[in-house]
Amino acid sequence: MKTWNVYLSGEIHTEWREDIERATTAAGLPVQFSAPVTNHEASDDCGVAILGAEADKYWHDHKGAMMNGIRTRTLIGDADIVVVRFGEKYRQWNAAFDAGVASALGKPMIVLQRPEHDHALKEVDAAALAVAREPRQVAEILAYVINGSLPGATAAQAAE
């Protein structure tokens, strides 16, 4: 049986990743997850911590962005499906960029966002194959894609 590689991009301030992982584990789905570095300080400071300090904040951030880009591009490239979460509180420019990379690579994409972001994200949503509102829906999409099962279906029904 195929193990599906799912990349979870986007906001790092809620437990949406853990919610999806718990639901897919409970459903017994053969899924392996990857994600960007979600420790905000480590992500921001990795470049200067490894390559040396910068007096200018622009170059400080630039070094970190380049190093994080190595991880992000590699994991999105290896993904079977990319999930991009846009949260309520912060503008996730990095998530929008990840969505663009996934789209350019032809990766199937699921966007996870609240309805109030529909207009602002209309171009991102147009590139996605599904737009979900809750992490539970992402897990249900994965169950359907992997097993052909609808929410609440028994194992026998899914096997038909």
Rank of each mutant, 00 (worst) to 15 (best):
K2L: 00
W4V: 10
G10W: 02
E11R: 10
E11L: 09
I12D: 08
H13Y: 09
T14H: 01
T14A: 02
W16N: 01
E21V: 15
P30D: 00
V31P: 04
F33W: 07
S34L: 05
A35M: 11
P36Y: 02
V37T: 11
V37H: 03
H40N: 06
S43N: 13
S43Y: 08
D45W: 09
C46R: 12
L51A: 14
A53N: 14
A55K: 11
D56K: 05
W59K: 06
K63E: 01
N68R: 14
G69F: 02
L75F: 11
I76V: 15
D78R: 15
V82Y: 01
V83D: 11
G87Y: 12
Y90L: 08
G100Y: 00
V101P: 04
A102C: 05
A102R: 06
G106S: 13
G106E: 10
P108Y: 00
V111F: 08
V111M: 12
V111E: 11
R114N: 04
P115T: 11
H117W: 12
H117R: 14
D118T: 12
L121V: 09
K122P: 04
E123H: 14
D125F: 03
A128V: 04
E134T: 14
R136D: 10
Q137A: 14
E140Y: 05
V145W: 12
P151I: 02
G152N: 10
A153F: 10
T154V: 01
Q157H: 07
A158R: 08
A158Y: 03
E160L: 10
